[in-house]
């Protein structure tokens, strides 16, 4: 990946999808994010890796406008995050709801259309049904549509949550640890569907699982309170050591190792 119009002062034709400037967040005196400068551009598939407790989820919540930054600035599509929520698809780590909740898969996916509803009294229409149907087909959960979520496997549940995000037809997809509880089939479906999603959508994925960083990722950064950006698609020992605070043995499968070997010298880059 080479830089194009990212030089300081250069006139950018389009606002970055996500732009944070010196973003700092702290909880009760504990610094969670420190001077994070992140720039995600249209069409990126951006992966942020880092250890648990490194502030990954906090960063996602800040981008969603769920928490306000202590200092610094966040812009999503050039606007305040709260004003563009309907353009963001969010796939949380799915502990945010109870599995025993009496709700069917179809109903969950329909909730992804909620952000597009105007006013308090608008009801789901044909357009909503079409989007929900498409999202379910994409994640291959159509046959589960009438099942209650309490009867699903972990992988099926995760696909449902991703389908919910896709149903909103977002321009930006935020994925928080998307493959933690997922079986191999769901992981394959997840990546193959995301490859197609990328045609219309910018993707930001955060994970502590380096093996998730897939061949299609275009940019990688490491987050451990501070963000170490590497405007490339390679993972290096140095990056891993920086973000995890110690050398880590990488055990990888398939086609990932060739990325691990390459070295480069940039320590920290403020891209935007």
């Amino acid at each position: 990946m080479t830089r194009t119009s990212d030089e300081p002062g250069a006139i950018t034709i389009e606002d970055p999808v996500i732009l944070t400037e010196n973003l700092s967040v702290s909880y009760e005196g504990h610094q969670v994010l420190e001077k994070v400068n992140l720039c995600v551009r249209k069409g990126d598939w951006y992966a942020i890796i880092g250890p648990n407790g490194g502030g990954k989820t906090t960063l996602i919540k800040a981008i969603l406008g769920l928490i306000s930054p202590g200092s610094g600035k966040i812009r999503v599509f050039g606007q305040d995050p709260k004003d563009v929520r309907e353009r963001i698809g969010y796939v949380p780590q799915y502990q945010t709801f109870q599995y025993a909740f009496p709700i069917r898969v179809r109903e969950v996916v329909f909730l992804g259309r909620m952000g597009r509803m105007k006013g308090l009294f608008q009801r789901y229409g044909a357009e909503d049904s079409r989007a929900v149907h498409e999202a379910m087909a994409r994640m291959r959960i159509e046959h589960l549509a009438d099942r209650s979520i309490s009867t699903l496997s972990g992988g099926e549940r995760q696909r449902t949550i991703i389908a919910r995000a896709l149903a909103g037809e977002p321009d930006l997809l935020l994925l928080d640890e998307p493959t933690v509880y997922v079986d191999d089939l769901s992981r394959d479906i997840f990546f193959s569907s995301l490859t197609r999603v990328r045609e219309t959508c910018t993707v930001l994925l955060i994970t502590h699982d380096i093996s998730v960083v897939h061949a299609h990722v275009t940019k990688i950064a490491c987050l451990n309170t501070r963000l170490f950006t590497h405007d490339s698609d390679q993972i290096t020992d140095e990056m891993v050591a920086q973000s995890y605070g110690c050398p880590v043995d990488l055990i990888t499968h398939g086609d990932i190792p060739h990325r691990v070997l390459e070295r480069h010298n940039r320590k920290e880059a403020d891209e935007c």
Partner: peptide, 12 residues
């Protein structure tokens, strides 16, 4: 009721 955080992220 189902997912407070998600509905918040949707601007509900």
């Amino acid at each position: 009721s189902f997912d407070q955080e998600y509905s918040q992220s949707q601007g509900l």
